[in-house]
Amino acid sequence: MKRRQLGSISWKTVEWGLLIAVSLIFVFPFLWMFLTAFKTMPEVYRFPPTFLPEAWQFENFQLAWKSGPFLTYVANSALVAAGILALQLLTGVPAAYAFARYRFPGRNLLFALTLIALMIPPQVIFLPIYVEMSSWGLVDTLWALILPYGASAFGIFLLRQSFLQVPDEVIEAARLDNASEWKIMWRVMVP
């Protein structure tokens, strides 16, 4: 009995040690970035680098705040993120629901094309997207950042896989309660 407890304790120690080591690997870049924000410019470029700043420079944050319209940048980022999220929900959820729950001609081909879209490197489509946005007159607008990402092949794939996990009995029960397909999709499948 004691031997089993000893083995369990030593295994837990190794497990916790590995978890802490991996956590430190992931946290270290953020800690380095945070501490570097307090360094002077020559100290940032010093080799070998120093971990802690020699003289803490709190003025760096004031300088960064005053260097541009920071609140505008934050608002633009929030608008772009919200716009992309809304469009991806409006396009991805119905597409994933159709791929998961309906049988129609060409379904497998369309889903394969969706998966093929995952293999296209983003760098390949930058120029065509710019040309398209330019022809629509959307260059230098937030719409040019939102529209190209309005549909996500990866999102459709993940949602489809999630929707396939919902038992058919749940959907049948919703249909017996006179729920429309729209209601089943948004009230049963998405949550």
Results as ranks from 00 to 15, higher is better:
1 M>V: 07
1 M>S: 12
2 K>T: 15
2 K>F: 12
2 K>H: 13
3 R>T: 15
4 R>L: 12
6 L>G: 02
7 G>R: 09
7 G>M: 08
8 S>G: 13
11 W>F: 15
12 K>S: 05
12 K>T: 08
13 T>L: 09
13 T>G: 02
17 G>S: 13
17 G>T: 09
19 L>N: 01
19 L>Q: 08
21 A>V: 11
22 V>A: 07
23 S>G: 15
23 S>R: 04
24 L>F: 15
25 I>N: 06
30 F>M: 09
31 L>Y: 09
36 T>I: 13
37 A>M: 10
39 K>F: 04
40 T>W: 04
41 M>W: 14
44 V>K: 04
47 F>P: 15
48 P>Y: 12
48 P>D: 11
49 P>K: 08
50 T>F: 12
51 F>Y: 05
53 P>S: 03
55 A>K: 12
56 W>P: 07
58 F>T: 06
58 F>P: 03
60 N>P: 00
62 Q>M: 10
64 A>L: 14
65 W>A: 06
65 W>D: 01
68 G>E: 14
73 Y>W: 15
73 Y>A: 09
76 N>T: 07
77 S>H: 06
80 V>E: 01
80 V>P: 00
83 G>M: 01
83 G>W: 07
83 G>K: 10
83 G>Y: 00
84 I>K: 00
85 L>E: 03
86 A>T: 14
88 Q>S: 06
91 T>E: 04
91 T>G: 00
91 T>R: 07
91 T>N: 06
92 G>N: 08
92 G>Q: 01
92 G>E: 14
93 V>H: 00
93 V>K: 04
97 Y>D: 03
99 F>M: 12
103 R>F: 06
103 R>M: 10
107 R>M: 13
108 N>E: 08
109 L>Q: 05
109 L>Y: 13
110 L>H: 03
111 F>I: 06
112 A>F: 14
114 T>Y: 11
117 A>F: 11
118 L>F: 08
119 M>Q: 04
119 M>A: 06
121 P>F: 07
121 P>S: 10
121 P>C: 02
123 Q>P: 11
123 Q>V: 12
124 V>I: 11
126 F>K: 15
127 L>E: 10
130 Y>W: 12
132 E>K: 15
132 E>R: 07
135 S>K: 14
135 S>R: 10
137 G>S: 01
138 L>W: 04
140 D>V: 05
142 L>C: 02
143 W>I: 06
143 W>N: 02
143 W>Q: 06
144 A>K: 08
146 I>L: 08
146 I>P: 01
146 I>M: 07
148 P>Y: 14
148 P>V: 04
150 G>C: 09
150 G>R: 00
151 A>M: 13
152 S>T: 03
154 F>W: 04
156 I>S: 09
159 L>N: 06
161 Q>K: 14
162 S>K: 13
163 F>V: 00
164 L>A: 11
164 L>M: 09
166 V>P: 03
167 P>T: 05
167 P>S: 10
168 D>G: 14
171 I>T: 13
173 A>G: 12
174 A>M: 14
174 A>N: 04
176 L>K: 12
178 N>G: 14
179 A>Q: 05
180 S>Y: 03
180 S>N: 08
182 W>M: 10
184 I>K: 02
184 I>A: 08
186 W>Y: 02
189 M>H: 09
189 M>K: 12
189 M>G: 15
191 P>S: 14
